[in-house]
Design a protein around this nucleic acid. Structure first.
Lengths: 149, 149
DNA sequence: GCTGAAATAATGCCTTT
DNA sequence: AAAGGCATTATTTCAGC
């Protein structure tokens, strides 16, 4: 990284530690190709939840506790939650929907979108100048300035 | 990692290099909290594409070339592509949909699902024994055995 | 907030088990 | 497939500016 940005290694390390301290860098990960570890089936599942706000939150937490469920997003519109799910195959996906997700209290229905092929999938955020409109609306007031520094 | 798994550092390094060589570990990344860098708006966009298979592929590649588009999945069902998109805010999202995505040849319509709150978002794959059914159906025949070794 | 030197740790390569 | 030894190289710490 130091070579890439043309800075002394110690300076880069100091900046990284500060980014970690501010919660901007949340951690580090090895990126594993899902297919190669027997997780060839990707799907998005829209989950409709009934009941009060408290019951909905409880269902969200239960959905998030399932290992195959990589992402749980509370979305606007008819469906309460949108899930990103990885399984070995379609059969495993079906089992998961019926045996694990369908049995969570409050879950009324699920609508599954099967992924046939992934064209792009990255964790690299668009940090270029072209995408730098808006900003500053983050919850943490330090966040906006931290980018500019 | 060596301390975590209770193995000699040299052994762990050797295994990592082999995993990289087999394409199982594809790379390493620092995980950056999107909100803290002015990317507080997450959305999923279903894109309908017209035309022949060749034209569809071209549209997929153009969608993937947009930095704010983190993921492009070819999905079963009415909509051709499902996108994961990160922008600074709703305004930026609207601009992106009209000015960038809507102008790609072959794109007929877009249906956007706005994320209100993300409950869970991880890159950690479910590798536990409970999720180890199916397997072996990967394209690369080495992939299935690589896990078992 | 960056540099540079010194201490500390990781890596690549080898042999052995 | 993993451990251990060892030379090389990288990372981390720590003044100093």
């Amino acid at each position: 990284m130091a070579r890439t940005v043309g800075l002394a290694p110690s300076a880069v390390l100091e900046r990284l530690r500060k980014l970690e301290g501010r919660g901007i860098v949340q951690g580090y990960a090895a990126l594993v190709a899902p297919r190669t570890v027997g997780l060839g089936q990707l799907a998005f599942v829209a989950v409709r939840v009934s009941g009060t706000g408290e019951q909905e939150e409880s269902a969200g937490a239960r959905l998030a506790a399932v290992p195959e469920v990589l992402e749980v997003h509370h979305v606007a519109g008819d469906d309460c939650y949108l899930l990103k799910v990885r399984t070995s195959d379609a059969q495993h996906l079906g089992t998961l929907l019926r045996q694990r997700l369908g049995r969570i209290p409050g879950v009324v229905s699920t609508r599954t979108t099967v992924v046939l092929e992934t064209v792009k999938e990255t964790v690299r955020l668009p940090l270029g100048p072209s995408t730098r409109q808006g900003d500053g609306s983050a919850d943490d007031p330090r966040a906006a300035t931290a980018v500019a520094r």
